[in-house]
Each structure stands twice: as structure tokens, then as C-alpha cells.
Design a protein around this nucleic acid. Structure first.
Lengths: 150, 150
DNA sequence: TTTGATGCAAAGGATTTGCATGAAT
DNA sequence: ATTCATGCAAATCCTTTGCATCAAA
């Protein structure tokens, strides 16, 4: 049942249905984003995009990321620095949270069903029904912990 | 062992130790903040402060909230709107997370030791040692759920 | 008096937007 | 030909800062 849909075609369909036009810069940005597999800021994306075409503007990246967000392919995240980072949307089934090293910035994704279950339970006990949540654990990763004591 | 320290005197001591001076506006802002018991933005605080003295500037509120944060009395929070909200710091022992109604904006604080325990466990399994975390559950509160179906 | 606090307005950083121009349909 | 997308710069929003002035100490 879980047919892996090509993000590119999903994007193409979305644009068709909304009367949007394709463009070279849009393709580059989408390509870079789909390939990058990270949690990139607009400026980080822009840097990579400009390696392909130096004339792409920042505004276009912002606009493209909004488009990718609107069609459900990208998800904006706000961690503890003022910048929005985008990650590939994995779909609701594949929700996950983040573990962030405050020393090196490394970001690890994780899911824990036991935590998710408890979250619903806690919310229920306050009369809430949860639609979504945000959980970030900040700490020191193994690598940094090692180089620390050295 | 848990002697409840008056925030005002804590603030006074902090200022003394750091060679800072008292001021009328600082007192008003601290008063408003300690009384307000909420998760207020700078502008919300400013509004309330100006009911006491209309001439207080926004910059002063920003500066005062930084001071209160520095001396451990206030805690800045960033939820899913671009504005920083300040809440009374409860101290590390009394850490808590948030339940936020996406309809009416109501914010409920909660703690769940089972979740906290699992968080450490998950982090450990990835080699991380957690220093702090952020968890927000978004959903619909009981009141909004009722007025919904009506 | 000396030093820190204030108010104002200017400056910052991140993101958005208006507009003339360029490209896709 | 239309209509949307782009690039640029100006505009926003939130927050911080420089500076002359005011008020604690």
C-alpha cells in the first residue's frame, strides 16, 4: 500500500493543478533540496543552488520552499536558533522528533512510540486532543562528549 | 528545604551584585511580569506596563526582560508564532512542558516524569546526554472542542 | 558627580512583497 | 499573447543598539 511516490512528479502534479509554471530555478532548488537530505536553512540551500546557477536569488529560494511546503514535500522546523530549517516531509505516518547536539549542531531524528502514547494520554487528561507536537532534546552527542574530556 | 524566595528580593540582590541601579520602570515591569502569570510577549507586557506609566518604551521592556532572564526569574519561550513569550522561571526542579490549543491559544503547563524518563533513555540510545528539552503538544482544548460541534 | 537607565530612532537579521522584466504555456 | 516566475530592492516584523539625556548611587 505504501507506494513511494517520486517527489518530482508530486511537485509537477501540484503545479499543474494550481496553474503554476515550471522554471529552471524551481527545478534546481527542488533537486538540491531532495538531494540534500538535511535540515537546511534558506541560505544553506541558496549556497548549494548557486553552485549550479549563480544567478538564483534568495527570494526565489524562499518562494520555492514555500511552494514545497504547500504541496507537502517540505517541512519547516524552528530549532533554537532564529532560522527556519527545511526537511523532507516524511508524511504523517513517519513523524519524528529531534535530538540536537548543542556543541556541534548535529541533528538526529528519532521516534519513540512510548513517548507518543504518553503524550496523547497526558493531553487527554487535560481535555486536549493532540493534533501534532514538537519535541526537541538538546544535549551533547557522543563525539563531542569524547573530545571534551580529552 | 524549599524556601520560597521573593522574586523581588532576588532581583534586588542580583542588581546589587552586578552594580545595576533600580528604576521606576524596572520595578513596574517586574511587577507586571510577576503578577501576570502567563506567557506574555513583550508587546503584551508593554501594554500592561503602560497602564501604569504610559511613557515606558518598548526598548526598556526588552532590556528588563533580558535582565529578568539573566537573573533566572524569567524564561523565554518560542512557540509556533514568531514572538518570544516570557514565563516565570520555576527553577530547574520544576521544569514543565506545554499544551497549546491551536484554536483559542490557551496554554497549559504540564510535567510527566514517565515522558522525561523515556526522553533520557532515547537520547542515551543515540549516545546523547540531554541537558534540556522542548516539548509542545498542539491540539484542541475541551472548551473549543465543545463549541465546535454545537 | 559618576555611572547606569531611559527613550528615541536607527540598525539588524530573517523573511516577504511590489514591481518591471523575463520565461513558460 | 497571457500569465506566472524572477531578481532586485524596498518593506515587514521582531529585536537590539547608539547616543544624548535623565536619574540613582
Amino acid at each position: 500500500m505504501t507506494s513511494t511516490i517520486d517527489p518530482h512528479s508530486l511537485l509537477r502534479d501540484y503545479m499543474a493543478q494550481h496553474g503554476l509554471k515550471a522554471s529552471r530555478q524551481r527545478e534546481i532548488i527542488a533537486d538540491v533540496f531532495f538531494t540534500a537530505q538535511g535540515h537546511l536553512t534558506v541560505d544553506e540551500l541558496l549556497q548549494r543552488v548557486r553552485k549550479v546557477d549563480a544567478r538564483v536569488s534568495q527570494a526565489t529560494v524562499y518562494r520555492a520552499m514555500r511552494l514545497l511546503t504547500d504541496c507537502g514535500l517540505a517541512e519547516p522546523r524552528n530549532f533554537s536558533d532564529g532560522q527556519t530549517r527545511y526537511e523532507l516531509a516524511h508524511g504523517h505516518e513517519d513523524h519524528h522528533d529531534h535530538l540536537i547536539c548543542t556543541r556541534c549542531g548535529q541533528i538526529v531524528e528519532f521516534v519513540d512510540d512510548r513517548i507518543e502514547a504518553l503524550q496523547s494520554k497526558v493531553a487527554q487528561s487535560h481535555g486536549f486532543s493532540v493534533t501534532h507536537h514538537k519535541m526537541e532534546l538538546y544535549g551533547i552527542c557522543a563525539t563531542c562528549a569524547k573530545s571534551d574530556g580529552a
